[in-house]
Nucleic acid binder design. Structure first.
Lengths: 131, 131
DNA sequence: CTGCATCCTGGGCGATACTG
DNA sequence: CAGTATCGCCCAGGATGCAG
């Protein structure tokens, strides 16, 4: 039922559909994903939703839970419900999740150390865009 | 008409609206931005549209030019038109643009060196998502 | 070959309001 | 405090067709 195997040419694309970079980008393309992950790390690897949200200005409750659920499905965080009143919940980075902190740190650190470049780009974009 | 200046509290958010990481994410949130940049680098810093598109499977003509124009406005690439028939164009990384290759390389390299982690995450996501 | 204009759809994301 | 449900906007981004 399958066609004959494709010539190797079709697998030689330098930037194949499923190359590592693309997979990585797909996983963390969400607007809040990396920030939540990184913030969890900053907060010692675990945090309650309230604190998490207060630490990330602009993050709505909806997007927070939604993103956290995705991270949970990815196996990057766990969700622990404490049986008390009022309800308390704790999200915690898994061992797998912590693995992904490294590249995030690299990226974020680079950004922090090169704000001059960011300034430069933003200045360029502002120029000639009167509109 | 303006309110009194806000207390400094409002500027102390650890993850402020305009912190470096967010600025970085905003600039490169496009689906193709980083890939185009990185591919230009791989191709020696310059390339014609055709080759660029052929090197990045799935990239449509529209999104390519659109993204390239944004990169141009950011000052990360230049566009040079050769006056010949048929028309030929060359996009080239600027010095500023090359600066941004470093973090991209770091990220992409990390991805390539940790495909096992990517596998792991994708396996998790596939599980229990019968639907 | 390169590039622009158009049209259109999906879904990411935000605002609001309601439960326990 | 934590979470869900609903609604609706907006726009990124894909497909197609035309022009130089």
């Amino acid at each position: 039922m399958n066609l004959a195997p494709l010539p190797d040419i079709y697998r030689q694309a330098p930037f194949s559909e499923d190359c590592a970079p693309r997979r990585l980008l797909r996983l963390f393309s969400g607007k809040w994903t990396t920030m939540i992950l990184h913030t969890l790390h900053l907060l010692g690897g675990a945090s309650r939703p309230g604190q998490l949200q207060r630490t990330i200005p602009g993050l709505s409750k909806k997007m927070m839970t939604q993103t956290l659920r995705e991270l949970e499905r990815m196996g990057l965080v766990t969700r622990e419900v404490m049986q008390v009143m009022p309800p308390a919940v704790e999200y915690r980075l898994t061992a797998l999740g912590q693995q992904f902190i490294t590249p995030l740190e690299m990226l974020y650190r680079w950004g922090a150390e090169h704000t001059d470049l960011l300034d430069c780009v933003e200045r360029n974009m502002a120029t000639g865009q009167e509109r």
